[in-house]
Design a protein around this nucleic acid. Structure first.
Lengths: 190, 190
DNA sequence: CGGACTATTGAATGTGGTCAAGATTGGTGG
DNA sequence: CCACCAATCTTGACCACATTCAATAGTCCG
């Protein structure tokens, strides 16, 4: 865990390897994953506005990150004038991603099966690859705002229909039939 | 309409007065509002990454905006070194808002009544005020990812129970009982 | 006074939630 | 090597909420 929701923000983070999830905890104890920070992305932008961290940052598996305390960041910015520019681009990208999640991954006019399919398509290890990261069904549930049970049911259905083929035990990836997955993501029922 | 989803991005916008909505259209014709741009906020950050606009920007009522073509923006940045800093902060704020929407306004462990209540609380004209912007129920539906019918039903229920009092005809605001609205937002059923 | 759009309300259907019970998996220690 | 335990995943039955479809009021223009 890199930092906690509600803690005073003091540093910006960038991920080098692996991935971290930003989890937002509701007053009632419910948890929701609001962003996945992949290599090259930034976490903890709150520090720039002096706000508290508005989510907790938790590593998904082993990661290598770079911690940039605010003072260090300011110093770097006076040296490298392009840094601010690149950070701004990254922030814009993160915003675009968040809005894409809002539009395509949240409930509303799309059944759970479709949303799970869309999420899986975004979890491909590489563009064009048939392998997708295998994350815990509790994480899938926390991203899509559904329960663990429905997540499990949908994944099971995909396995049965051959869209997904389970990996060797302990593996972090599973194989997907991209074409049929895209059909599911469109909502095609046939 | 300031720009269309999918169009080549050529300018950044900031809102002076009023508000604009960023609407993302799905392949199936469905529309979802992914952000409300209020005075001081930025729209069209895609231009910084050279991407296409990933949503359409549509004014909600009369607005006054400032259009900044990319060339102008670059020129301004060489003059005012603090501009990039302020833009970065704004981008971070927008990201925080988007993630808050993801956590609190989308379906998942919260019935429609609760989410409408939360949305209304964020539509207050001023912090502490009892007046909330009265937006079309089709807009409420597009933000929360519910249908117009359920939005209408919930609003009607709030009016009947006295939580909301309808405004004079043609007004852009309506009065809310903040305390009871907060109770509804918590999910308290009593 | 129409005409178009938005809002409202009602009934039937269906998807996902809840609750509860097993099944796998992975890890620990005897 | 195996027994045991905790955590995660899986599956089933029932129910509630929201969607869908459809029909009726408003409301703002021309």
């Amino acid at each position: 865990m890199l930092y906690h929701q509600g803690a005073r923000s003091d540093a910006l983070y960038t991920v080098r390897e692996g991935a971290i999830k930003l989890v937002r905890h509701g007053a009632d104890g419910s948890a929701r994953i609001v962003r996945i920070v992949k290599p090259g992305d930034l976490a903890g932008l709150e520090v720039l506005s002096g706000r508290e961290y508005d989510a907790s940052a938790i590593a998904i598996g082993p990661v290598r990150v770079c911690r940039l305390p605010l003072a260090t960041l300011d110093r770097l910015r006076t040296i490298d004038s392009g840094l601010g520019q690149r950070m701004l681009e990254k922030a814009g990208d993160a915003l675009a991603e968040a809005q894409l999640w809002l539009a395509e991954l949240t409930a509303g006019s799309a059944p759970a099966r479709v949303r799970v399919a869309r999420l899986l398509l975004r979890l491909k290890t590489k563009p064009g690859s048939t392998e997708v990261f295998r994350l815990a069904s509790s994480d899938i549930a926390a991203i899509l705002g559904i329960t663990v049970e429905t997540a499990s049911r949908v994944i099971a259905a995909f396995k049965r229909s051959g869209v997904l083929t389970p990996p060797a035990a302990g593996s972090y990836v599973m194989t997907a039939d991209s074409d049929r997955l895209m059909q599911e993501a469109e909502g095609r029922t046939d």
